[in-house]
Design a binder for these strands. Sequence first.
DNA 1: CGAATGATTGAGTGAAATCAAGCCGAGTGG
DNA 2: CCACTCGGCTTGATTTCACTCAATCATTCG
Lengths: 271, 271
Amino acid sequence: MGGSNEAGWRCHGNLWSNLREICDLLHIQAPVACQDDEVLFQHVRFKAGQRVHTIGQTFDTLYLVNSGFLKTVLIDEYGNEQVLSFPMKGDLLGIDGIHSQHHASEAVALSDCDIILIPYKVFAALGRSHAELEHAMFSVLSRELVREQIMIGMLSALSAEAKVARFLTNLGERFSMLGYSGKSFNLRMTRHEIGSYLGLTLETVSRTLSAFNEMGLIQVDQREITLLDTNALKTLRRLPPAKARAKVTDKVQALVGKKLMPQWSGDAVAA
Amino acid sequence: MGGSNEAGWRCHGNLWSNLREICDLLHIQAPVACQDDEVLFQHVRFKAGQRVHTIGQTFDTLYLVNSGFLKTVLIDEYGNEQVLSFPMKGDLLGIDGIHSQHHASEAVALSDCDIILIPYKVFAALGRSHAELEHAMFSVLSRELVREQIMIGMLSALSAEAKVARFLTNLGERFSMLGYSGKSFNLRMTRHEIGSYLGLTLETVSRTLSAFNEMGLIQVDQREITLLDTNALKTLRRLPPAKARAKVTDKVQALVGKKLMPQWSGDAVAA
DNA sequence: CGAATGATTGAGTGAAATCAAGCCGAGTGG
DNA sequence: CCACTCGGCTTGATTTCACTCAATCATTCG
């Protein structure tokens, strides 16, 4: 809040995409009988900090990210933000508005973004005319649903270290799928936003990143991250729910976890 | 596991529903031009403990709950269950299978259930022929998505007491929408399942219910629950993230919360 | 350059987990 | 029938992980 750009301000871009480009972005195969100029979809640019849609806003269009990084948030009764996701290229925004015709969440640009507008009516009509497209559309919604289910499982079952570790590896995987480096990347969000997303405080996020850095699992410098031992990060699940453990891998995990606890004697601090 | 009925066993029922009945159950208006006998959907009965679908199973049909109570779960790498939802009458199961053509979660009957089978192909075809229906179908998926988003917000921001309180009031609301009593009902799930759903241990769930009972907010006897002060339960949000509070209601909340902490001197224990 | 925002780190606390014991009700079998 | 088990629930004692509060840096920006 308090930024110079308040919600809803849209700078009109001048690019347009056809259906084929939309399908490519969404990773679904375009219908065979697809005339390239059948329909065109407008691009709109958002500056960092601008909102693509706000809570309560009337829903009538879906948003497909063509470039840039965003966050989607819920606002609770005290005005606190709850981060739900960090969409990037190829992600579809605004789905939550279909049900009640009003957006249930808010999408904020974390960097300058190029967003493609897909009017819901056009979206729906395309499904009716192309059977393959309709399935693909249901598929996209279903994928979102599964993603959120996994998120729920992660939130309620994993330790703080495991949450941060998975967050980093997931981010890496998404970057590499987009053609960027999956090992070395730049966080577009603050520690506070990461914490909100993972159900942790910013201090815990910061401490955990520092600990991973100490352990040589990653290299951190502010928002610059390099994953050094992706495997260890992926297998570092949870420490708490020991209960009936026997497997070898588990014992290794426990050890890796324990190493976090002892005070990391400050040797490389304060240059 | 270890029950006499393993997954997949289906006792064929002999009931069938038409499209109008399906739409009623889903709370969507049936298409005006809807011939009642256009398509028929088969009912199938499941006994308590049976699985409607299992993880990894090939997806080809959606399941609509006509009666009974279920849980949907994710299984993690250690074989631990993570409860995702407690579906009941009117809820649609299996959506998560659309994306990958395989179910990502498992649905288990907590009581005897009557389930309506909706072949996905039929479902999709209906959307293409009836425009209103297509929107309604997207709407159902969107509603699921919003529900999960709210779940995520709840998991990462609320205290244990607030989670349990909301769980109870939500359950009450769902029961009253189905025409049952929203004040007095029977939990169909164990403390362990509630805990898994809320990201808590069964002990914490049990303690919290006992505390609410002590405070006169509810009345508990094993799985028999009576909500005595629904309002207090609904407004009992969170205690921890104090940070910048000033409002009157907040102070009241804090007090209500604090009363939980002092040891409840056992007076009514052990008859 | 200060002001502001974000990040790091420390010290102490507290909410919920863990470990552990006992109770209750249902089902089983001698 | 009663002894026995077994799963679910309750409650207590203790531990611990992550939060809170607080101070200090780093970086950006007006």
